[in-house]
Design a binder for these strands. Structure first.
Length: 276
DNA sequence: GCCCAGGTATAAA
DNA sequence: TTTATACATGGG
C-alpha cells in the first residue's frame, strides 16, 4: 500500500479485496451516495469522494494525513480479507457462494455513536428510507462544514425532545434516538468500553437503551466497534438460516461470524430468488 | 387499499 | 417462558 498525491486528493496503490459499491452500499453504512462511479460520503467529521482509477484507489477532497488517520482505518485496510474469506468459505458451501458473489466487501470501522444511531433507525425499516432519515438527521442537527453535514453528536441530540425530531420522519424511533443520545452522552452507556469487555456484557450494555435489542446491539458492535464475532440476525438472515443453512445457528460461524454474516446478507438481498 | 422493510416494547397466553 | 400485536413512514 503506497499513497501518492494528485490534483484535488490522493491515490493509493496496492489495495486488494475492496469493491466500493459492495462495501459502501451493502447496508452497513447509510451515508454514501454513488454518482458516476464515485462514492461520496462523510465519516469522522470529514467528507471524501472515492473511486477506482485502474488499480488505484482515488480519494478526492482529502489529504495523505487524513488517509492515514481516518480512511485507512475506516476501510479496514490493514485486515487481510482474502485470508479471512478462505477461512469462512470452509464453513459451508453456500457461504463460499456468498463470498465469491461479492469478494470486495469489507467491514467498515464506523464511529460507534453513528452506528448505534443509524441502526436504531433501521428497525422495521428499509435501506432506502433509512438513508433518507439519516440524511435529514444530519442536515437538521449536524454541524455544517463546507458543503456537507457532520453526523450529529449524542450531546446535541440529548438536548432534544422526540417531537423535535419530527422533521427527520423516523416515526416511533424518535424517542429511541433521544434515549440513546441521553444515555451515551450522560455516560450511562459507555460505547468505548464495549470494544473490549465480554461480548455478552457489551450486548447488555447497549441494550440498556430503549429500542436497542439484540439485532441493533450486534450491528453496533460489528460496524461501530469492529466486534467481528457479532452476528446480527435480521429478516434476511432469518430466511438465510432457515433456507440456506438448515440446522445452523448464528453461533456456528466462528470467530469471523460478523464478516461471514455480511457476505450472506448482501448475497441474499441481491439474489432474493435463491429463497425460491 | 395491502404488504413489506437490516426490530423492539408491551401485553397476553 | 413463548407468542401476538402495535408502532410511523413510504415505496412497490
Amino acid at each position: 500500500m503506497e499513497v501518492f498525491k494528485k490534483d484535488n486528493g490522493i491515490k493509493i496503490s496496492g489495495i486488494t479485496d475492496l469493491d466500493l459499491a459492495q462495501t459502501l452500499d451493502c447496508g452497513q453504512s447509510f451515508r454514501w451516495i454513488e454518482k458516476d462511479g464515485k462514492f461520496s460520503g462523510v465519516a469522522f467529521g470529514k467528507k471524501a469522494e472515492m473511486y477506482f482509477d485502474g488499480d488505484y484507489l482515488c480519494i478526492d477532497n482529502t489529504t495523505a494525513e487524513d488517509f492515514e488517520n481516518i480512511w485507512k482505518n475506516y476501510l479496514d485496510l490493514d485486515l487481510d480479507y482474502g485470508k479471512i474469506r478462505e477461512e469462512i468459505k470452509k464453513i459451508h458451501p453456500v457461504l463460499e457462494q456468498a463470498c465469491d458473489y461479492a469478494p470486495g466487501i469489507r467491514i467498515l470501522r464506523q464511529e460507534p455513536w453513528e452506528a448505534l444511531c443509524t441502526f436504531i433507525i433501521s428497525q422495521n425499516n428499509n435501506i432506502k428510507r433509512i438513508k433518507g432519515i439519516v440524511e435529514r438527521l444530519c442536515e437538521n442537527f449536524g454541524e455544517k462544514k463546507e458543503d456537507y453535514y457532520v453526523f450529529p453528536s449524542a450531546e446535541t441530540l440529548a438536548k432534544l425532545n422526540p417531537e423535535d425530531l419530527a422533521p427527520i420522519r423516523a416515526g416511533f424511533r424518535n424517542k429511541y434516538i433521544v434515549d440513546a443520545a441521553q444515555k451515551v452522552s450522560g455516560g450511562e452507556v459507555d460505547l468505548e468500553k464495549c470494544r473490549n469487555i465480554d461480548y455478552e456484557e457489551a450486548r447488555a450494555e447497549l441494550m440498556k437503551i430503549k429500542g436497542v435489542g439484540v439485532k441493533v446491539a450486534d450491528c453496533t458492535l460489528l460496524f461501530g466497534l469492529h466486534r467481528i464475532e457479532a452476528f446480527p440476525v435480521d429478516v434476511w438472515m432469518k430466511r438465510a438460516l432457515e433456507n440456506l443453512f438448515p440446522g445452523m445457528s448464528e453461533n456456528d460461524f466462528g470467530e469471523y461470524a460478523g464478516i461471514a454474516q455480511q457476505y450472506i446478507f448482501h448475497y441474499s438481498r441481491m439474489n432474493p430468488e435463491i429463497f425460491k
